[in-house]
């Protein structure tokens, strides 16, 4: 694969970097990343990965664009209200970079479809907003040996961790199971600063890029937390957990399963 002058210009700021170069840019163009959730986290992640020339980007979301989304979901615009989020996201990504292929999955992600969904991708980004989905993505990725970036945002706070096969701990090592509905607030009830999705979703994109080009240290074994009001980032070391039911020594979870979702979660799209 030889670069055209146009591609050299488009990706020049990448190719100049010794950690990326021609090789890294080719790796990006040949890579496949799946983003689950085209919302506050998924929108910035999708924009940066598209701009970076990640060759194939999958985007899964069952929702349509709502006016209340536009405060943070920067991949959608006002004329997109009412449109499927996957379609709106695809149009924006292709407008940024016609080099890439965008696959859309206008569907709920469930235990039934997730193995097939993630199978063709190199890296998964969890941009969902509810615990059942986050646990489902964790379990499915651990079982399928897929690296992924988990994240959550609420109010002025955000956090993320990266899992790579055999480089645990996974999300379930830290949080055993979803809290009961309404026990801890989600961003729909609690609110969130739109830029928080930009900060954390961009970090997720950065993890995907580092994984693809194989440079630097991934956020495996750590939870990175961000408190915007205190303007404080903390990289917290996570203990290992041999008794984890999905990635531990004697796993009891052998295939993905769905937790029951609340009516509120379902209404929101996941």
């Amino acid at each position: 694969m030889a670069f055209t002058n146009e591609q050299l210009e488009r990706y020049s700021r990448h190719i100049i970097l010794s950690e990326v170069g021609v090789k890294g840019q080719k790796q990006l163009l040949q890579s496949k990343v799946l983003i689950i959730g085209a919302g506050g986290l998924g929108a910035p992640a999708a924009l940066y990965l598209a701009a970076a020339g990640v060759g194939t980007i999958g985007i899964a979301d069952a929702d349509s664009v709502d006016l209340s989304n536009l405060q943070r979901q920067v991949i959608h615009t006002t004329p997109d209200v009412g449109k499927a989020k996957t379609q709106s996201a695809k149009e924006t990504m292709e407008a940024i970079n016609p080099d890439i292929t965008v696959n859309t999955y206008h569907t709920f992600v469930t235990a039934r479809n997730i193995p097939e969904l993630i199978a063709g991708y190199d890296f998964i980004i969890d941009g969902t907003d509810n615990f059942p989905a986050k646990f489902l993505i964790n379990d499915a990725c651990v079982l399928a040996k897929k690296p992924f970036s988990h994240a959550g945002i609420i109010r002025f706070k955000g956090q993320l961790l990266t899992y790579a096969p055999d480089k645990g701990p996974c999300y379930r090592c830290v949080f055993k199971e979803p809290p009961p509905p309404e026990a801890v607030p989600t961003c729909r009830q609690a609110g969130v600063i739109g830029a928080m999705g930009g900060v954390i979703g961009s970090l997720q994109a950065m993890e995907a890029i580092k994984y693809i080009i194989g440079k630097g240290e991934l956020l495996t074994g750590y939870l990175l937390t961000y408190d915007a009001l205190k303007m404080e980032f903390r990289k917290i070391k996570l203990p290992g957990n041999d008794s984890c039911p999905v990635c531990g020594k004697n796993p009891s979870i052998l295939e993905p399963f769905d937790y029951e979702q609340t009516a509120c979660d379902l209404k929101g799209g996941h």
Partner: peptide, 11 residues
């Protein structure tokens, strides 16, 4: 000691 909190939002 570290406290690790659930954070559910994302969309």
């Amino acid at each position: 000691v570290e406290f690790l909190y659930f954070m559910g939002g994302g969309r």
